[in-house]
Nucleic acid binder design. Sequence first.
DNA 1: ATTGCTGCAAACGATTTGCATGAGG
DNA 2: CCTCATGCAAATCGTTTGCAGCAAT
Lengths: 170, 170
Amino acid sequence: MPEKRVDNRPSAAHNTLAEAQHILHEHLTQLGLKRSSQRDTILRVFLKTRDHLSTEELHTLIKKHDPAIGYTTVYRTLKLFVQCGLAAEVEFRDGVARYEHSLNRRSHHHMICTRCGDSVEFFSPEIEELEHRIGKKFNYLTIQHSFQIYGICESCQKKLTDAVAATGAQ
Amino acid sequence: MPEKRVDNRPSAAHNTLAEAQHILHEHLTQLGLKRSSQRDTILRVFLKTRDHLSTEELHTLIKKHDPAIGYTTVYRTLKLFVQCGLAAEVEFRDGVARYEHSLNRRSHHHMICTRCGDSVEFFSPEIEELEHRIGKKFNYLTIQHSFQIYGICESCQKKLTDAVAATGAQ
DNA sequence: ATTGCTGCAAACGATTTGCATGAGG
DNA sequence: CCTCATGCAAATCGTTTGCAGCAAT
């Protein structure tokens, strides 16, 4: 196991929170909206995850910090985060909207296991290039793209072959 | 209004229908399911479209051929088509499931206008290659991928600039 | 004071299922 | 005959909205 993945930017987490809060408050001001303790709490908890959370999952986490915060507030706040670029919706084909943070996050894509929902991220600069090329070709003003690979992860493959072996042995 | 459609591959349409029906019936037999006139009608109407139809839109078309066929049957039949590879679900981000035929259809992707829902198809071999490369790298057995570009089509861009010009002129 | 925010409950809309009846093998 | 298919109505589930009371500016 080489590469333990050390973060060479010492206080990255704290800086990210401060930066994110600044972006959110700026966004609120611009739209004539107001700060609230709930929104700050939701942002703080959201930034602490690296997962792809559904609104409900995030709400569950939020309640541990402040049980009074309701589902609707989390739902509406996530939309705010998307508006100001702090969060991005990701498509996992499991019937719920999922969000990840998108601040200081290098453009990436997901490969998702359709059995267990596990996912890995990968990088692919050629996809960005492709978006621009195709947009130009058909005179579209491109906004974004969505790219996912669906498959079966190593551990689920193992479970499947084991199951087949067991059936065959009977 | 029969058979206006000019096709330079003489009996391509007929062959596709025959092939599709064969695939469907084979699939039904394998699962111990039964043929039905409804399923055949739905397949016939579905194959005649080149659009990306929602279940409801397809149901509307179906009713012109046989008003007795219900929404649920169309819904369940589309799932069958997906199972046996006759149809594929496409993601248009408009909140409804959309299907296109996938038989004898070269692999392609979509660029979708988020204003009017218009879409263009494009081809990109590098995407297929990427799916395999990433799958191998992370030991995933890849099944499929999903790639869409979202943007604003030429005609909607025009409408937008016109609208801005009108506001500015007042 | 004014205006936005919150949390509840209710509305919503697409999808999915239960069930009695009808059709396929 | 037995099993599956059908179509209706009802249930489901994530999402979205209306509203009365609360909080921020």
